[in-house]
C-alpha cells in the first residue's frame, strides 16, 4: 500500500459529499426566495392598487349603495368613468376597529386570568394539564367554526340560542373566542419566565398570593403579555370568516355594537371580491380596503414589536 500524497488531501467520495451539501444549501436559499417573492408580490399589489383607490372621501364617506349591487344598471355608467365621489369605506373602518376593540376587551382580561390560573395555581396538576391541552386544541379550531358557533348560540332564533340577531357584538364574541387561547398561551409563557425569587420576595414580606400576582408577577411579565395580546389583535383585525354571517351589513356607520347590522373591512373585501369582482369599482374598492386593513393589522404588529423591544431594553438595564 502506498502512503497518500497528503494527509489533508480529499478522500474518495468527498467531492460528491460536498456537492450534495452545496445542493442542499442552494435548495434552502431557493425555498426562501419562493416564499419571499409571493409576500412581496401580495404586499406590492395591495400598495400599488390600493393607493390609487384611496382618497380623503374614500376614507370618510359611507358605502355607496350602487356598488353593492342594488342598482347595477346605474353602476355600468360609472365602470368606465371615474369613481363616484360619494363612495367610501368609513363604516367598515369604524366597524373593524370597534368590533376588534370589543373583542380585545373581552379576550385579553379573561385570557390573562386564564394564563394566571394555568401557571400560578394549576401548575402541573392533572386538571391544569387538561386545560393546557384544550387551550392548544382551541387555537386549532377553524375560524369559520367560531363563526358558526356564535351564529348558533347568539344570532339564530331556534334551539338554545340567545336570539340577539346579527350585530357587531356577535362579531366581537367570535373574534374573542379566537383570541382567548392565544392570549392564555402568551400569558402562560411570559409568566413562566418570571423568576420564582420575585414571588418569594413578595411572600416573605407577608404578601398574599393574589397580591403577589397582581403587584409583582404580572407587572414583571407585562411587556410580553401586552406584545402577545397585540399580535392576537393584529390577527383578529384581519379575520373574515367568523364575522361574515354574524355581523350582518350596513352602509352607514353604526357605532352601536349591540344593535343593528355592522360591517368590517374584511367582510367588505370578501363581498366585493366574491360577488362583484367583475366590476372595476368593486374591485378598486376591495384593493383600497385591503390596503387600509393591512395598515391596521401591521400597526398592531409593529406596536407589539416596539413593546417587546422596550421591555427587553428595560430588562437589560
Amino acid at each position: 500500500m502506498t502512503a497518500p500524497a497528503s494527509l489533508l488531501a480529499p478522500r474518495p467520495g468527498t467531492r460528491a459529499r460536498h456537492a450534495r451539501n452545496r445542493i442542499a444549501t442552494l435548495s434552502i436559499w431557493v425555498a426562501l426566495i419562493l416564499v419571499v417573492v409571493p409576500l412581496v408580490a401580495v404586499i406590492g399589489a395591495v400598495i400599488v392598487k390600493g393607493a390609487s383607490s384611496i382618497s380623503g372621501s374614500f376614507l370618510t364617506q359611507d358605502i355607496n349603495k350602487i356598488t353593492n349591487g342594488q342598482k347595477l344598471a346605474a353602476a355600468f355608467a360609472k365602470v368606465a368613468g371615474k369613481q363616484s365621489t360619494q363612495d367610501g369605506i368609513k363604516p367598515a373602518i369604524i366597524g373593524t376597529l370597534l368590533i376588534t376593540g370589543l373583542a380585545t376587551l373581552l379576550a385579553v382580561p379573561l385570557g390573562v386570568l386564564g394564563g394566571v390560573y394555568l401557571n400560578e395555581y394549576g401548575g402541573r396538576s392533572r386538571f391544569a394539564r387538561l386545560l393546557r391541552f384544550l387551550t392548544e386544541v382551541m387555537t386549532g379550531v377553524p375560524s369559520i367554526v367560531m363563526g358558526l358557533f356564535v351564529f348558533s348560540i347568539v344570532v339564530v332564533k331556534t334551539g338554545f340560542s340567545l336570539g340577539w340577531n346579527v350585530s357587531g357584538l356577535a362579531g366581537s364574541l367570535a373574534l374573542a373566542c379566537l383570541m382567548l387561547p392565544v392570549v392564555i398561551r402568551a400569558t402562560e409563557e411570559m409568566l413562566k419566565l418570571v423568576p420564582q425569587e420575585l414571588r418569594e420576595a413578595s411572600y416573605a414580606l407577608g404578601a398574599r398570593k393574589s397580591k403577589t400576582i397582581v403587584s409583582v408577577v404580572l407587572p414583571a411579565a407585562a411587556g410580553g403579555i401586552v406584545s402577545g395580546a397585540l399580535l392576537a389583535v393584529a390577527r383578529a383585525s384581519g379575520e373574515t370568516a367568523p364575522l361574515v354571517f354574524v355581523i350582518g351589513i350596513t352602509r352607514t356607520t353604526n357605532t352601536n355594537l349591540f344593535s343593528g347590522g355592522n360591517v368590517a373591512l374584511s367582510t367588505e373585501i370578501f363581498r366585493n371580491a366574491l360577488s362583484y369582482g367583475s366590476y372595476a369599482t368593486a374591485r378598486n374598492r376591495a384593493w383600497g380596503e385591503a390596503l387600509v386593513l393591512i395598515v391596521i393589522a401591521l400597526s398592531f404588529t409593529l406596536l407589539a414589536r416596539l413593546v417587546t423591544a422596550l421591555f427587553v431594553r428595560r430588562r437589560a438595564a
Partner: peptide, 20 residues
C-alpha cells in the same frame, strides 16, 4: 401564613429586588 412571613422576614441567596 402571610402574617407569619410578615413577622419572620427573609433575605435570599441572590439579591432579588422587584423590577420597580
Amino acid at each position: 401564613a402571610a402574617e407569619v412571613r410578615r413577622r419572620i422576614g427573609m433575605v435570599f441567596q441572590k439579591p432579588n429586588p422587584f423590577p420597580k
